[in-house]
Each structure stands twice: as structure tokens, then as C-alpha cells.
Amino acid sequence: MTISIQINQLKKTYRSGAKAVHALDGVDLDINSGMFGLLGPNGAGKTTLMRILAGIASPTSGRVVVGGYDISGAKNRAIVKGMLGYLPQELGLYPELTARQFVDYMAILKGMDDARRRSARVSEVLEMVGLTAQADRKLKGFSGGMKRRAGIAQALVNDPRLLIVDEPTAGLDPEERIRFRNLLVSLASERIILLSTHIVEDIGQTCRDMAVLSRGQILFRGSPNALTQAAAGHVWTVTTAEPRRPDNGLSVVSMLHLAEGVQYRLVGVHPESYPGAAAAQPGLEDGYVWLMKEKNQAVETMAA
């Protein structure tokens, strides 16, 4: 059975004295089964949105319906939590428990009381994340990647219809990142997987549907391909021996030191000041930078 998420005019404001911060400012989203990527800079409101969907934070206003349940009520929130797997950005574990004990504990908290079924499922998810050999080792001896895998194992233990993973690849080495992304994709056919990240590559490699969130607002909703194509005609490469970085309204996406100088990859309206600029095929990262420029949002590029 597949589920869907409907988010209407979702707002979340944090108040501290007279100061108000609008973490989410009128978010509208419909999300269906499969991998859904939520991309945005740090502080965009992604974690707030994830926490609201996980039933941990309450919206200031707006409506969120998960699998037909409006999560504004405590009873519905509990039902949604029962179909949820959650891997938070700051993953805290119990160092004295083994991976098996930790996942078993989380399974109990998720309401899996039948010891035999629970034990089988715990072994199954540890196998899925490749931790069978380390299942009886204490978590305090695990590497960052192994801890993340233990985290995803606990998230999967109740066979969730909705899996929320917040910045899951932060701090992982390239091999762990690839393994983690592949694991998520392999799980996506039967559920919604909501992947929140500020790493563009993670979205491009895994999602067919995505949104860009910045300053609490949705700036883009569509496929990674559509975001990439939005930058078509606005991406150039310039090779120059000048020490000064290209500017004139252009954002430097990357730079490469070559024998003849420095090759810059630029995104902007037009490189008038650089007659030697060559048009380049856009990538998802270029699409993201172009979108942020178009929407007058600050973007952390190399020119910033």
C-alpha cells in the first residue's frame, strides 16, 4: 500500500522575545511514493519541515496530511509515527548497546512486542544495511558510516511507509555515501523516502522528484532534470591566466588549475566581459545555482 503527503500553507515561526524567525513560510507540497529530494542551503527550513512531518514539531499554521491522517491531532500524530522511519541529522546512539540491542530497543518503542518476530526483523534490517558481522559489537566502537547504517536499520525496523532521512550522508566518506545512496534507492519502490540534504549530488543520483527550499519557501518543484535544464544557456567555462576571479554578476561554481591558467565554471545571465567563454552543458549543481540567482537568494559559491 502506498501513501502520499499533502502539505498546505505550512508555516513555522520561532519566537525569541520580540524576534520572530520564519523557518517555514507558506510551504505547499504534494509528495508521492518513491525518493523525494529536498534541497536547500543550511538554515533553509529543511530540518524544521522534517521534524513537523515526523510529528516531533508542531506547525504554527497550515495543514499536513500523511497517508490520509491530518497530523494536527495527537491521535493521528501517533498513527503517523507508527508508519514512520526517521533518521535525524544529529543521530544520537547509546554507546553501551550493541547494534542489535539498539535496533531491538527501537523496535520495542515502535510497538513491536512479539519477541520472535522482532528478533527476525532486527536481523533482517541489520543484514540490509550490511551490519550482520558487527551486530553484536557495541556502538561506541562504530565508525561514522557504521553508525549511520545502524541509524537507518532502526528507521527501517518497523517497515515504515514513510522514511525521513535528514542530511544522511553528511560526514561520510565517498564509499559510504555511495553505499548509503544505493541502499535508499533500493528501498524506495515501496514507500516515500524523503531525503533532505544540502548536497546537490545526493539528490541528482537518487531522486526523480524534488523541491528546493530556501528561507522557508519552496523555490522549485519538479524533477532534477528540469532543474538542470533551467540553467541551459547560462553555464560557461572560462580559462584565464588573470589572478582575479571572474565576477560581473557571474557565480563561480567550480575552478580547476590548468597549465594555461585557471578554468572557471560560471553560471549567470551572460559572460559579456569574457569573450573567450565557452558554453557548457549544465549539471544539477548549475541548475541549483542558477535558480538561487534567479530568485535573488544568497548562494554559497566560490565567488561569494
Partner: peptide, 14 residues
């Protein structure tokens, strides 16, 4: 003081 507090909160445990 629970290190896995956020995980704990995401479960349906009352």
C-alpha cells in the same frame, strides 16, 4: 539527557 532523544520522540510511544 538521552542521546537518542529525537529518535525516541519519533516513535509512537506515549
Amino acid at each position: 539527557d538521552d542521546p537518542a532523544l529525537e529518535l525516541m520522540f519519533a516513535t509512537p510511544r506515549p
